[in-house]
């Protein structure tokens, strides 16, 4: 997702109407409900939802936890685009000309109530691709007496994919998942590629063969909506294309897997070095020693005025 720093730091409209698509599972009924919220600069969609829940309507249901774009719980469709409620500033999606924000539950995930969706299927797909390192010799990992060396370049190749927080926004945006329940989806397939391309993983053959099915990367049509909505810049769309072309190469016998060298951990402990003071001046034209001696002066009057 592109982040527009200017829009995110703007002051939002004073009052914003929230149109929320609600669902009551007991009556199996959906409807739109409107709430007016007084905003402040820096207010996120989640802040506004909590304010609505506290002050206007206690029955509204959503899920959140970290409030800072880390846990991946608070995904919802904001003005037609899957976003994290806690990471979206009101000023990014509402304007003076149109101070209205529409909130819907994430698409392609079943709705339990209001904005709360059920991730069981989504997490099962994630689990099904075995999202962890697999070594042939289990002892290596259990004993922990060896290190698998990865170059910074190799690390960079997959670092992006490790940032996924399993928020399900990509799955919600995917037009293939919209019509095919079996499709593994951008998130799980990204994890497959993340481990196939990891030099330390030894189950790449099994992974490639397991994913060579209709619900695997073959079903992707590169609408790239996953990459356009991902809040962590994971680029799942590209990961699926890399996985698919690796699969084609594998079937033609052309796929080369990078493998990590093993390094023994030294038996003797390395003595910690005492840090040395910097030899040259860190900042051009600044005498650090003189600064050390001079007392710190904070211009309080200037700051207050």
């Amino acid at each position: 997702m592109t982040f527009d720093a200017q829009a995110a730091t703007r002051t939002p409209p004073k009052k914003v109407i929230f149109r929320i698509r609600r669902y009551n599972p007991e009556k199996d009924k959906t409807w739109w409900e409107e709430y007016e919220v007084e905003t402040y600069r820096g207010m996120t969609i989640l802040d506004a939802l909590l304010k609505i829940k506290e002050e206007i309507d206690h029955t509204i249901v959503m899920r959140y936890s970290c409030r800072m774009g880390v846990c991946g719980s608070c995904g919802m469709v904001v003005n037609g685009m899957p976003r994290l409620a806690c990471q979206t500033q009101i000023s990014e999606v509402a304007s003076e000309a149109k101070p209205v924000i529409e909130l819907e539950p994430l698409k392609n995930h079943p709705v339990i109530k209001d904005l709360l969706t059920d991730f069981t299927k989504f997490f099962n797909k994630h689990r099904s691709v075995k999202p962890y390192l697999i070594r042939k010799n289990k002892e290596e990992v259990e004993k922990g007496d060896a290190e698998f060396i990865m170059t910074p370049e190799e690390h960079k190749e997959l670092y992006e994919y490790t940032l996924c927080i399993a928020c399900g926004l990509c799955y919600s945006a995917c037009p293939v998942a919209a019509s095919d329940d079996r499709f593994l989806g951008p998130q799980a397939l990204t994890y497959v590629w993340r481990y196939v391309s990891d030099p330390r993983d030894e189950a790449w053959k099994e992974r490639l063969e397991a994913v060579d099915v209709e619900e695997g990367p073959w079903s992707c049509h590169y609408a790239a909506s996953c990459s356009a909505v991902c809040p962590k810049m994971v680029d799942p769309g590209a990961a699926i294309q890399r996985l698919r072309s690796a699969l084609i190469k594998y079937k033609l016998g052309l796929f080369k897997k990078k493998t990590a060298k093993k390094a023994e951990i030294p038996k003797e402990q390395i003595k910690p070095k005492k840090p040395l003071p910097p030899e040259s001046k860190l900042v051009e034209g600044v005498d650090i020693e003189a600064m050390d001696k001079a007392p710190v002066e904070i211009p309080i009057e200037e700051l207050i005025s």
Binding site: M1, T2, F3, D4, A5, K156, E157, L158, Y159, E160, Y161, L163, A224, S227, A228, C230, K232, M233, V234, D235, G237, A238, Q241
Partner: peptide, 13 residues
């Protein structure tokens, strides 16, 4: 693949 930096636009896009 890139290390994320503002404006966090996915490389393939």
């Amino acid at each position: 693949p890139e290390k994320p930096k503002p404006p966090y636009l996915a490389p393939s896009l």
